[in-house]
Simulated scan of single mutants.
Amino acid sequence: MNFKSCLSHEENTTMNYTYQDYSAFSVNYDDFPVLCVKESNRQFRLWFMPTFHSIICLLGLAGNILVILTFFYFRRLKTMTDVYLLNLSFADLLFALSLPFWAANSMAEWVLGLVLCKAMHTIYKVSFYSSMFLLSFISVDRYFAIAKAVSAHRHRSQAMFLSKVSSAAIWVMALIFSIPEMHYTTINNNTCTPYSSNSDKLRVTVQASQIVLAFVLPLLVMSFCYSSIVHTLCQARNFERNKAIKVILAVVAVFLVCQVPYNLVLFWNTVITAQGGAKSCSYDNRLLYATDVTQCMAFLRCCLNPFVYAFIGVKFRHDLLKLLKDLGCMSQERFFRYTCGRRRSSGATDTDTTTTFSP
């Protein structure tokens, strides 16, 4: 039996042409975005982050707790630098306590909820900004105590009041500068992050302000103050001069080694983000490696600050050893062996400047 098509000859021709044209159509997949695989970076973080975060956390907790105990045990808040050092220890201790959450966020999916997510980033930024500002104020105080000694002695009665007011202002400023991350931090792709994507415009603003306020500004202040202090010490004829200069150089070196690499990578990340993100997947992965490594170097500041700014001081080191003796961690004989000779040799220079710059 023959069946005739219900369509006309022209319609059949049109349908046949259309079908053949569609079958010959090819898709250009170059126009579609390709997912950047970051499995190697994820595997790197699984061992790198918990290892270094654990080391920094333990050292940070031990060092800063010892500083805080020494201050309160001996009631040693006698100078502006003492007040700033105590606040610096609280800021670094606060940051060290947040490191386990940072390690958990880098290793696996974030399951602790939005409140802890926001708290982790807020604590980090508050402690970060306050630490940088306190380091700047310590350098300013040392500048007036050494380079402008006459002027500093004239206003000595007001120093403690000014140090407490300025410390409170530092914490308030640090909290204000942390508000953007406190507000925008969320859980994105099972990760606690303040940014929605690598090309987020908010990310450019936050990172740029962090570089200026928490690195460039403190670096300029510290550079001016410490260069002036070194110039003043070079003109003095004190036999402790060279040792004090070495301590200042150590303070500057630790700051530069910890902060410069991370801020350079952060600056370049900000530039790449402002341009819409990295064009190459391999280049994006290399930036992630650089960010992880330099960020851990920057995190080292919370455990190095007690050694650089507190334990190197003659009076503070003596008080620390006495605290360890009173707690039963050191024998009486060992305490006298560590302190007697050194106290006799440094007694002539045991002034308020020994808190930070005495060997």
Results as ranks from 00 to 15, higher is better:
Arg75Tyr: 04
Leu288Asn: 12
Ala24Leu: 14
Leu77Glu: 11
Ser136Lys: 08
Asn190Trp: 05
Ile55Gln: 04
Leu114Asp: 07
Gly277Phe: 01
Thr70Ile: 01
Ser98Cys: 09
Pro261Leu: 11
Ala250Leu: 14
Thr270Asn: 11
Met297Leu: 15
Ile187Tyr: 07
Arg337Gln: 15
Thr79Gln: 09
Glu109Pro: 03
Trp47Met: 03
Arg301Gly: 01
Leu202Glu: 07
Gly63Arg: 05
Cys340Trp: 02
Met132Cys: 08
Ser166Gln: 13
His155Glu: 14
Leu59Ala: 15
Gln259Gly: 04
Phe161Ile: 10
Leu7Phe: 15
Leu324Gly: 01
Ser127Pro: 00
Phe95Gln: 05
Val150Glu: 14
Ser346Gly: 01
Phe336Gly: 02
Val150Phe: 01
Ala298Asn: 12
Leu264Asn: 06
Val34Met: 08
Ala108His: 11
Gln235Pro: 01
Ile146Gln: 07
Cys340Pro: 00
Tyr184Phe: 14
Pro218Cys: 10
Ala348His: 12
Thr122Val: 09
Thr18Glu: 10
Gly277Glu: 05
Gly341Ser: 11
Tyr283Cys: 04
Cys234Glu: 14
His231Trp: 15
Cys234Ser: 10
Thr51Ala: 11
Ala103Ser: 15
Lys38His: 13
Val216Leu: 14
Ile56Cys: 02
Ala96His: 08
His231Ala: 15
Arg334Glu: 12
Ser280Tyr: 07
Pro100Lys: 02
Ile170Ser: 06
Asp200Gln: 10
Met182Arg: 01
Phe44Ala: 04
Pro100Asp: 03
Val37Leu: 10
Tyr289Gln: 03
Leu266Glu: 08
Ala250Tyr: 04
Ala147Gln: 12
Phe255Tyr: 15
Ala174Gly: 15
Met107Pro: 00
Phe299Ser: 10
Pro50Glu: 07
Thr191Leu: 09
Ile245Met: 09
Ser127Lys: 03
Thr70Asn: 13
Leu35His: 10
Phe95Asp: 00
Ser98Glu: 09
Ser40Tyr: 05
Lys243Cys: 02
Asn198Val: 01
Gln259Ser: 12
Lys201Pro: 15
Arg156Asn: 06
Phe72Ser: 12
Ser167Thr: 14
Thr354Pro: 02
Glu10Arg: 13
Thr193Glu: 02
Val140Asn: 05
Tyr338His: 13
His155Leu: 12
Asp352Glu: 14
Tyr17Asn: 13
Gln259Pro: 00
Pro100Gln: 04
Asn285Ile: 02
Arg156Gln: 07
Thr356Lys: 02
Leu300Val: 01
His318Tyr: 14
Val216Cys: 08
Pro261His: 08
His9Glu: 15
Val115Gln: 03
Phe95Leu: 10
Val252Glu: 07
Met1Glu: 09
Ala145Glu: 02
Ala149Gly: 01
Asn238Cys: 04
Gly276Ile: 05
Asn285Tyr: 03
Ile138His: 05
Met330Lys: 03
Thr351Arg: 02
